[in-house]
Amino acid sequence: MNFLVNLLLRLVLLAVGLVFFASVAVAVAVLWLAWSLRMGWARLTGRPVSPFIMGIDPRKGFEMYRRAQQREAEPSRTPRADATRAHAPQGHPLQVTDVEPREPGR
Results as ranks from 00 to 15, higher is better:
residue 51 P to K: 04
residue 10 R to G: 13
residue 68 A to I: 07
residue 39 M to P: 06
residue 78 T to P: 04
residue 52 F to S: 09
residue 80 R to K: 10
residue 75 P to K: 05
residue 15 A to P: 03
residue 66 R to M: 04
residue 94 L to V: 01
residue 41 W to M: 12
residue 74 E to V: 02
residue 95 Q to N: 09
residue 26 V to I: 14
residue 80 R to H: 10
residue 38 R to F: 07
residue 17 G to N: 09
residue 46 G to R: 01
residue 12 V to N: 02
residue 71 R to P: 04
residue 98 D to M: 03
residue 82 D to L: 14
residue 19 V to M: 12
residue 34 A to Y: 01
residue 21 F to H: 01
residue 44 L to I: 13
residue 99 V to N: 01
residue 72 E to K: 07
residue 70 Q to C: 06
residue 17 G to M: 01
residue 35 W to G: 11
residue 34 A to R: 15
residue 81 A to W: 00
residue 29 A to E: 12
residue 21 F to L: 03
residue 86 A to N: 00
residue 16 V to A: 15
residue 34 A to C: 13
residue 6 N to C: 12
residue 76 S to R: 08
residue 84 T to G: 07
residue 28 V to I: 03
residue 54 M to L: 14
residue 88 A to G: 04
residue 72 E to I: 03
residue 69 Q to E: 14
residue 102 R to A: 11
residue 56 I to W: 14
residue 31 L to G: 09
residue 94 L to K: 01
residue 16 V to P: 07
residue 7 L to G: 07
residue 78 T to D: 14
residue 26 V to S: 11
residue 52 F to G: 11
residue 76 S to V: 10
residue 59 R to A: 09
residue 35 W to C: 04
residue 67 R to W: 06
residue 48 P to E: 08
residue 91 G to E: 01
residue 100 E to M: 10
residue 63 E to M: 00
residue 49 V to Q: 01
residue 105 G to S: 04
residue 53 I to N: 09
residue 46 G to C: 00
residue 105 G to P: 00
residue 8 L to D: 06
residue 101 P to C: 08
residue 62 F to C: 08
residue 84 T to M: 14
residue 102 R to G: 06
residue 17 G to R: 06
residue 65 Y to M: 15
residue 37 L to R: 13
residue 57 D to A: 08
residue 48 P to K: 09
residue 33 L to F: 14
residue 59 R to Q: 13
residue 23 S to W: 02
residue 86 A to R: 00
